[in-house]
Amino acid sequence: MTELHFTDVQRDCLQELVNVAMGQASDKLARYLGTFVHLQVPAIALVEAALLSQHFASRYQQQSATLVSLGFFGDQGLRGETIMLYQLTNVGVIAQLLGYSDDAVSEAEMLTDISSVLTTTFLSGLAEQLENSFSYAAPRILSSRDRDFADKLAYTAEQWQLALQVDIRYQLTDYSFNCDMILLIPGEAVLRLRQTLDNILADF
């Protein structure tokens, strides 16, 4: 996998673009939800897709977790899939956050809604940084209340060569919940992404 390697400078560049996109997403969310979103430096890591399930299996060992996937496509062959990981104990908090307490909305719908809001706000900011724009596929729940989510994650990740793991902790003043976001990018799109980063770096 050496050809998909990122140099320190490229990594730093990507990290900064992610920071800026996160900032924009948080701002939009804060205004929309009427609550302050505490922003942490999102830790990004490039991991081999094959190792992903191991990594998350230990983190979500105790509770059952839900996986929601959302695909995105941009220009110049940039495409990928985001996976949001939630602990199901958070579902009530998410309902409150979205103002869903008033009517009957299924758990599945809440999870796809919050996932599409969190990922598309972030991704559209990232696309802007990359001077690209993304279109999105509808979110899908990969597994819910499922003990063997690691298998599902492994199966999904298998189709990708490299995963950009962005650990995002959405912490809000009035409500608190955590979720993890994983960006999965196929090999050839990683090369495109690296080229774009080099172009940005050449400007500065």
Binding site: K28, R31, G99, D103, E109, T120, S124
Partner: peptide
């Protein structure tokens, strides 16, 4: 209406797409 307005509000305010699936609605 209440459900749809919430979806449309999020599209307008966040300027990101929203989705609905027949499996849920």
């Amino acid at each position: 209406l209440a459900w749809l307005r919430r979806k449309l509000d999020s599209v307008l305010h966040l300027q990101v797409p929203a989705f609905s699936s027949w499996e849920q609605r």
